[in-house]
Nucleic acid binder design. Structure first.
Lengths: 314, 314
DNA sequence: CTGTTAGCGCATTCAG
DNA sequence: CTGAATGCGCTAACAG
């Protein structure tokens, strides 16, 4: 099933087939032959060979996303799913590559895929970006340095805002223990700080004993509300409090991020900040598509996509 | 950077380069030229064009995994990461495609990637399998129908075993509310039943009120221990118990599956069953590699990879 | 407006 | 053991 078959059935040349199938600009094709080609293609169930096209154009229609090496939660999972759906609408195929960059030099990766775009959460080095662009990759982007930075900051701002609105005047920030999520944690912390500069930041590991230590220290400082990096850290704070015989929100108010399923199951049910991943995905997709097809896009800030889910802990 | 460049630098023909780089059988190359070629390739940083190779051979070295449309947790995430690492070791590139099949007919997908193998959690229809195989995909496999079936069953068996070993004689099973995870839930339930046929199965939604209802009913039946589909469902049971003023494990023992981070943070800390994803991934990778390269493999059952993490709830 | 042609980079015969 | 030649399916110049 090649384009030659379609050409034969439609009674035109292969070039003509290529033109109508690709909507090649500056090539006007008569409506008659156009439909003839389209019908033939549909009738034969023709699908172009991605390999041949990639070889010829030096670029496939695959968008490759490099996943971070820390375990991704359902939030990111949802984001990727939505992104995939959005990109499919534009004929782009979204795939994600898990596993750290250490296993496989990223050059191997994009040489194996020849993607139209490469996305990643962490930033690329200048050398990496250069190499990819030189190889024909249209778009190379570190999500967190750009697209996701603003909403992440806003998450932190919302947390602090919720707490101060509830009358808290001394706040703590529960920072994650895992070095690998720094890139997510930093903008969130920045956001919280922008609304409340005097945050008392403490690292809170994901176990009750260690969390209890942090809780004790916050209490000594007079802190009455804490913003947690995410729901898991928030649950650790809750567990630490329980060990100290403290109750949320009375003794210490706690607010998380993500609204993972376990959040509503926590004791007390966790107040948290959730992100509308569908909107974020749509925006991301728009950016990617525009870049690949060399269109420009009106700048727009993603700030309406996060909101507080009020439950019991704050 | 083409194979011609390598040939020129090494002072041999392109065919020779191809031979040594692919370890072509029935072609003996002198060790001298072999190293000369290898050195030249390394020196130039040569990487073969995946597109050209795919066009020529009709198959890329990409292993495509179709993700289910329900949100994947950190467990599956870890599995995929490990699988990626293992496959990379054999020169295979692992990518995952999120998003439901509804968005994008899977034919589009493998035509865009020409993968060496396609993996999925759910099963493929006979027609789909046929089309893929005809298109040159070496391996098409529904993970849960085959490779993952046994360990999943063993998970259920372990849960029931742990509870009966602790002296419980009337057990319940907390089945997930989400239709989409049936394919995971069924083998786990089967496993639990195989060890304890009289299980009282109840659907437990992920909210405390609904869970409380199930808890009440189990209590009325005299159930003293419940196996939950996963940690989230287990936490729902715990939340339901709390609403009823009940304590685990005294009033009702609860055991989950997955050992998500929140499990150790639950109140009481959740006893659960964990899977050694590294071993599972290694086994899966072995299977895939063997199939792609047409080797056969000794059958081996994955049964030693799950174990109970004993905490407080059971 | 449509057809002809020339490679993209590679693996693979077939001769040497 | 190595070199030259062929074509995978497609797109982009270039002719007509």
């Amino acid at each position: 099933m090649t384009s030659a078959d379609v050409a034969r059935v439609a009674g035109v040349s292969r070039a003509t087939v290529s033109y109508v199938l690709n909507d090649t600009p500056h090539q006007t094709i008569s409506a008659a032959t156009r439909t003839r080609v389209l019908d033939a293609a549909a009738g034969l169930g023709y699908a172009p060979s991605a390999a041949a096209r990639a070889l010829r154009t030096g670029r496939s229609d695959v968008v490759l996303c490099l996943l971070p090496d820390w375990p991704i939660g359902p939030e990111i999972g949802t984001l990727l799913g939505n992104l995939s759906t959005e990109l499919a609408r534009s004929g782009l195929t979204f795939v994600a590559h898990p596993g750290s960059r250490a296993d496989r030099p990223i050059t191997d990766l994009w040489k194996a895929i020849t993607p139209a775009a490469v996305l990643a959460f962490t930033d690329f080095s200048a050398a990496e970006v250069g190499a990819m662009r030189a190889a024909g990759v249209a778009l190379v982007v570190g999500l967190l340095g750009r697209e996701l930075e603003i909403p992440q900051q806003h998450v932190g701002r919302l947390q602090a805002g919720h707490l101060t609105a509830a009358g808290h005047t001394a706040l703590g920030y529960a920072y994650p223990d895992d070095e690998r999520v720094r890139i997510f944690a930093e903008p969130r912390l920045r956001g919280a700080r922008s609304g409340f500069p005097d945050l008392s930041v403490r690292v809170v590991p994901l176990n009750p004993e260690a969390a209890a230590v942090a809780v004790r220290q916050w209490r000594e400082e007079g802190v009455t509300g804490v913003c947690a990096y995410n729901d898991e850290v928030a649950m650790a704070v809750l567990a630490g409090m329980r060990r100290e015989g403290l109750d949320a929100p009375g003794d210490l108010a706690v607010i998380g991020v993500d609204d993972i399923p376990a959040a509503r199951l926590a004791v007390p049910a966790l107040t948290t900040v959730t992100t509308d991943q569908a909107v974020v995905a749509a925006h991301l997709a728009e950016t990617v598509v525009a870049e690949i097809y060399d269109r420009t896009l009106p700048a727009r800030e993603l700030t309406e996509v996060v909101r507080v889910v009020r439950r019991e802990s704050a």
